[in-house]
Structure formats: structure tokens, C-alpha cells
């Protein structure tokens, strides 16, 4: 490696172009004897050739990962298959279950709607509002002449509210009341307390469990949490909000969350659980887009991103690091 960067020989972009050609050849098929010789002598001629060749190979490999995520997100916009039969309530007249796309017709108003794991339901209400129910969640819809009431019993739901100032739209969850004024927002009953995230417009928050003396307004890209430790508000950006509501489209999106937290999200929708035994691995930052409930795809992607392996143990997919993985 004595050469350093010499003053003239060839330009960097040309070297990269040749390196790309070699990287494709060697990645996609076995090289012929003559080709191998040619490659070897090209690599030996200048250390920069080796550097460019390594770069091209690594890029081609990296494109795999990104292409897999990208291809998955773009080519499979369809929601996870739902084979379960809708639990009919006596009053629910005509319900079709869809995650994205057409909405459910819903003309009876006192019905309770619940979802199991790995399903997301979209319910169209008579006034044009839409409720999307996350996995393992339940709501009760009680429309009256002068008020539209929805009670979130458990889990998480998103609301796209049709504007009607004569007939307020109020969601209650564990003693927290969220009043919408023509808007889109998400309410979830989390371990930490009731969480309200506003996507569009404004909501007013009140209720005995909100911890508030007077109603407070929460706006677009803001989040309110009625935590046991007291109410708090967080500013999110639109990317974060989008990520948090990706479940509505049947997707889970991670962009730098810890792998352990990501696995917990995945497990929320899947009977097959992803377990990470290695604490270092659980702290690693992870990115990817997955269909809800596809624990296997998640485990495999995580394994390939962190040079690990997936072992099946009963109902679990256990993620472990390869013995020879680099120490990072």
C-alpha cells in the first residue's frame, strides 16, 4: 500500500465505473478463469481499484436491503389477509371488513366493534366519519341526535371526523374526553395512560381523568398523554405522526427505533412472537417497513440487518447474533 494517491493515473469516476461492472459480474455468476485473472490483475494494479471494488460490492449488497423494504412497501399495498369472520352483533346490519380501500357501511349505531390481533378495521359511520380500529382494540359507537359519541374500550383507534358543528363528535377513553371539531386524530389506551395524537385540525381534551382543570386544545402534530404522573404534551413532526398511524394502512414503519421496541410493536399484531435475547441487539436502531402481523419478515430483516440468525422456539422467533459478527 505504498502508492497513496498518485497524481494522474485514471480518474476516480472511471475507476468506480469499472468497479461496478466487476461487482455485478462477480456477484451474479461465477467468473471464468480468464475473467478472474483479469480481475486479479486489475485489483493488483492499484490499491484504489480494490477500494472502489469493495465499495461497489457493498453498495450492491446494501441495495438488496433497501430494495427489499422498498419493494415490499410498494408492491404489497394490500392489507394483511383477514380470514376471520366478523363477529356479528344483532344490530350491525351490513359490515364488510377492509383495512385500506373501501370503507365499511355501518347504519346501526349502538354496536360494539372489536378487533383481534393482526387485524385492522375501517368502519364508515352514517355521518361520513370514519373510525379505524387498530389490532386488539374495541370501540362502542353511540350516536345521538345532538351528539356523536364513541367510547374506546381498549386499544387504539383513529378518527376521521366529518365536520358538523351542530353535532359534536366526542371520544371517551378511560375518563378522558376528546372533542373533535372536524379533524383527524388517534386515541390509544396505552400502559402509560390515554394518548391522543392529532393529525389534522384541533381537538379539545377534558374529562376527570385528563388531569386538566379546564379543556385544553391539541393541534396538528401534537400529542397529549394523560399519564399517571400528570398530563403532558409532546410536539411531533409529521414524519413521526405518519409513522405512528401507518397501522391504518396495514403497515408498521420503523425508522431508527430500538429493535426491542420495534419487536414489541410487531408482537402486538402477531401470535408468533419475536424475542430478542441479546440486550445489545435489542438496543440497536432499526429501520424497515412491514405488513402488520408479519413477524417472520420482521425477524428475517432484523437478522440480515444485524448479521444475526433467527431460531424457531415453539411459538417464538428468537433473534441471536452470529458468533463471528463484528463487535459493534
Amino acid at each position: 500500500m505504498e502508492k497513496g494517491v498518485s497524481a494522474s493515473s485514471g480518474n476516480g469516476a472511471d475507476i468506480d465505473a469499472r468497479a461496478s461492472a466487476w461487482a455485478i459480474r462477480s456477484a451474479e455468476r461465477a467468473l471464468g478463469e480468464q475473467e478472474q485473472k483479469e480481475l486479479d490483475s486489475w485489483l493488483a494494479a492499484d490499491s484504489r481499484h480494490l477500494g472502489a471494488y469493495v465499495r461497489a460490492q457493498a453498495l450492491w449488497l446494501d441495495l438488496d436491503r433497501v430494495a427489499a423494504l422498498d419493494g415490499g412497501a410498494r408492491r404489497n399495498p394490500s392489507p394483511p389477509a383477514r380470514k376471520r369472520v366478523w363477529r356479528r352483533y344483532a344490530m350491525a346490519a351490513s359490515l364488510a371488513v377492509v383495512v385500506a380501500g373501501g370503507a365499511v357501511a355501518y347504519d346501526q349505531l349502538a354496536g360494539r366493534v372489536a378487533t383481534g390481533r393482526s387485524e385492522v378495521r375501517r368502519i364508515a359511520l352514517e355521518d361520513g366519519s370514519i373510525v379505524t380500529l387498530n389490532g386488539n382494540s374495541a370501540v362502542q359507537i353511540r350516536y345521538e341526535d345532538d351528539i356523536r359519541r364513541v367510547v374506546l374500550r381498549r386499544g387504539e383507534a383513529s378518527f376521521e371526523v366529518a365536520h358538523n358543528s351542530e353535532r359534536p363528535f366526542v371520544v371517551s377513553a378511560d375518563g378522558v374526553k376528546v372533542r373533535a371539531v372536524g379533524t383527524e386524530f388517534v386515541v390509544g389506551i396505552e400502559d402509560d395512560g390515554v394518548e391522543v395524537t392529532v393529525e389534522e385540525g384541533v381537538v379539545a381534551i377534558a374529562g376527570r381523568a385528563s388531569g386538566l382543570a379546564a379543556p385544553r386544545y391539541i393541534r396538528r402534530n401534537e400529542q397529549f398523554v394523560a399519564a399517571a404522573t400528570g398530563p403532558r404534551k409532546a410536539m411531533l413532526d409529521s414524519v413521526d405522526v405518519e409513522r405512528r398511524i401507518a397501522w391504518r394502512k396495514g403497515l408498521l414503519v420503523f425508522n431508527g427505533q430500538r429493535l426491542g421496541d420495534a419487536a414489541a410493536e410487531v408482537n402486538r399484531y402477531s401470535d408468533l412472537r419475536v424475542t430478542i435475547d441479546d440486550p445489545t441487539l435489542a438496543r440497536a436502531e432499526f429501520m424497515g417497513v412491514f405488513k402488520l402481523g408479519d413477524a417472520r419478515a420482521f425477524a428475517n430483516a432484523a437478522a440480515s440487518a444485524f448479521n444475526g440468525e433467527v431460531h424457531r422456539r415453539g411459538n417464538e422467533l428468537v433473534l441471536v447474533r452470529q458468533q463471528n459478527s463484528p463487535s459493534h
Binding site: G4, G12, I15, G51, R55
Partner: peptide, 8 residues
């Protein structure tokens, strides 16, 4: 380009 190649 050349510095990056050499560094790699």
C-alpha cells in the same frame, strides 16, 4: 473519489 477509494 480517489481518496475515498484509497481509504476503502
Amino acid at each position: 473519489d480517489e481518496v475515498v477509494q484509497e481509504a476503502y
